[in-house]
Structures are given as C-alpha cells and as structure tokens.
C-alpha cells in the first residue's frame, strides 16, 4: 500500500465547545457533535492536505478531518462514488469525468488551493540560461546528449531526476516529457537535496526540483528560464510566473467538492484559500494562489 495513502490524520478532539464553525450559526444549540470531513486524492498534495487539516482542527475542535492519498485519479473516482467529501487533485478533471459527475447528480465545485512549479537547475558556471520545453524533453528522454546541441559547451549532459516514487517524477514525465519514458542513463537521486548537491558539484549536470527547494538553494545552483516553444520568450521560474501561469512547468492544485451547500466543508475550503491556509502553502514549498 502506498505509504502516503496510509498517512491519514485523525485527531479526535475533546469537545470544549468554545467556538463553532464560522457560518454555522444554525447549530449553535448542539455543540457536542463532531463533523467528519474526508479528503482523498493526490499524493503530491497529501503533505499539504495534512498540514491544513492539523492547523484547522486545532482551531476547530468540533471538526474531524481525515486525509488519504492514492493519487488524483483515485480521489476523483472516490468523489464520484461519494466516498469522500473533498477530492484533492493535481490535475483538472477531464470532460469525461465531469460528465460522469453530472450524470450522478453531483454539482462539482472546483477550487484552486495552491500552485506547484518545477525548476530546472544547472551548475552556476553553466553558460546556458534558457531552454525551450522541447529541448528539455529531448534532454531527459535521451535525444539530446551534448550541451553543444543546445548551443552550450562541447560536453556531455549529465541528467539528474528524482526516484520513480516521487510525485514530481510523474508530473515531469507527464507534462515535460509528454508521457515519454526517461532515458536509461538518467541518474535517479534519492532526494531533492542530493540533486541540488550534485548539480552544485557537476558543471555538466541538469536536474529538476520543486520551486521552493530551488529558490532555497540560492547561489548553489542556477535556475533556467523556460520557453514554452522555440519562438516564445524565456520565463524565469518564480512565484509570480507560476501564479500567472506564464511559467510552463507549473500546475494548479485543486480541491473538488460535490455538495456546495455543506457549511463545514465550505468553511474548511475558505480556510485553505484564506491567508492562514496560504501561509501553510508557502511553508510546504508550494506557491500560494494569490
């Protein structure tokens, strides 16, 4: 079983009945009941889901939130099967899935709760400062093996990737490699920190890491600007460019809910997209929505 899948948060609170959910005024006379909210879906988001839930349950002891991973697809089918309240998804629902929801009488509500960007990093001495998406794809699938082929020095390219178990690996494979396989010669590093470490040592290396980590690494590595295609202007990875969507290797992270009139869920969503929730987003290494 997926390890993230096992990771669920269930904190049963002692009902002190200090305050009720905001916007839940009708139940002011019955404070002893706890509301259970289930979140299921993206493995990438489990970490941040858990952080939100824990913070929210601290201030709302009458709410009990459980978080389960399994993948965005798993979460979406759970929402359609009405076995989860919130589906966490790192991709938007397909037209087919939306149609299925409509058929089942589920009114979908889509909320972007955070954004996730991936930066390509090279050694600070590397003269290359920008690549287009096609070049990146070819570098990691093995079609381009020399820096010369992308107007760099006459040296072989050392490609570094995360391990196959990483959510970033799958996102990169899907969106940058266009679902092609990584080349066999791509070195798989056990952690983001080891990618940063190796790139900072090897002049010819290129790797990809979450934007938060890349910015944190500072001058140890150089962040490449990415062009959507050969003719587009290069865009450097930053919180702003990820938020506006001009940086190509980024994605919004969604919460999908079925029932829009459910007050506790609406309150939780408001918390996640509010200032406190977005502060947690930043702390978790993702990019806030606003």
């Amino acid at each position: 079983m997926n390890i993230l899948c096992v990771l669920r948060t269930t904190v049963f609170s002692v009902v002190l009945s200090v305050a009720l959910l905001s916007g839940c005024g009708s139940s002011a006379n019955a404070p002893k009941t706890t509301t259970a909210i289930a979140i299921k879906g993206s493995d990438t988001m489990v970490h941040i889901d858990t952080a939100w839930s824990e913070a929210y349950m601290l201030s709302h002891p009458d709410v009990d939130i459980s978080v389960t991973g399994g993948g965005s697809g798993t979460g979406i089918s759970a929402l359609l099967g009405k076995s989860t309240d919130i589906c966490a998804s790192s991709r938007d629902m397909s037209a087919e899935e939306k149609k299925k929801a409509a058929d089942q009488g589920i009114t979908l509500q889509e909320t972007i709760v955070a954004r996730d960007g991936i930066a390509l990093v090279v050694h600070p001495s590397n003269p290359i400062s920008e690549l287009d998406m096609e070049q990146v794809q070819k570098i990691f699938t093995g079609a381009i093996t020399q820096w010369e082929q992308v107007n760099g020095p006459a040296k072989p390219i050392v490609t570094l990737s995360r391990e196959t178990s990483s959510g970033t690996y799958v996102f990169f494979q899907e969106h940058v490699l266009k679902k092609q396989d990584f080349a066999a010669s791509v070195r798989l590093m056990p952690a983001t920190a080891t990618i940063i470490q190796s790139v900072s040592e090897d002049e010819t290396a290129i790797g990809y890491v979450g934007l938060g980590y890349a910015i944190e690494a500072g001058a140890k590595v150089k962040l490449l600007s990415i062009k959507k295609d050969g003719a587009s202007p290069p865009v450097s990875p930053s919180e702003d460019t990820v938020r506006t969507g001009s940086y190509s290797i980024a994605r919004p992270l969604y919460f999908y809910t079925g029932a829009t009139n459910n007050a506790p869920i609406a309150a939780f969503l408001a918390f996640c997209t509010g200032p406190d929730g977005q502060k947690i987003v930043k702390e978790a290494g993702y990019v806030p929505v606003n």
């Binding site: 997926n2 391990e163 196959t164 178990s165 990483s166």
Partner: peptide
Amino acid sequence: AAEMGEVTF
C-alpha cells in the same frame, strides 16, 4: 529501498 516505499500494494 528507493521504490518499495511508494509502490502500490
């Protein structure tokens, strides 16, 4: 070591 942790049961 690298793959067992995240693989689907």
